[in-house]
Amino acid sequence: MRIGVLALQGSFAEHVEAFRRLGVPAPEVRLPEDLEGLRGLVIPGGESTTISHLLMEYGLFDPLSRMIATGFPVWGTCAGMILLARHSTAMPHPTLAAIDIAVERNGWGRQVDSYETEIGVPALGGPPFRAVFIRPPVVTDVGPEVSRLAQVDGGTVVAVRQGDALATAFHPELTADLRFHNYFVQIVAAARTDAARTESIALTTS
């Protein structure tokens, strides 16, 4: 099982390292051909406008959109959340719209307002998760099909899942806690099982 990490700009090396520690090969993705043979993809933190430009320029946006439409597992952290949202403010190009949320870019303010805190994430189990927020997007609308995985004091949603698409407004790649990476690995592994099941159903009915 290989999980790609979009490596156009941002904290991709940190994600690759987290997956390496989990024993999951995580090749860097810069061009459309790098998508071949992947079971899932992570869109890292970084500058969402930069990543958005480069997705367009190098022809990654269309194939990725098509893969996401068929249920390909994806996980976006911060800038990645912005790119996976149905709608985001102040973006130069369309988003990938994998998750039915609306976000406001830099909704929390500038770097002086960046912060870290501990949040409860029931889906992960165990102790609270240390979440580092760097000029994060703020989720302003959550669609009916979307699960809220975590929120901060005041009720703002900071982690969501819809089907096999996951998004976090913070950066699990910046801390040593691997539970979110492991959670995504489980999503990807289960997605493969689903595909295999579909195949076996197809075999028995034919």
């Binding site: 941002g10 500058e47 960046s114 870290e116 501990e118 609270p128 000029r135 801390t175």
Partner: peptide, 22 residues
Amino acid sequence: MAEAKGTWAVKKGLAQMLKGGV
């Protein structure tokens, strides 16, 4: 739990988000 601003992780973290960029 209280928000902690200006921590080492938060300061260093923004630079990590700039990596691979101009």
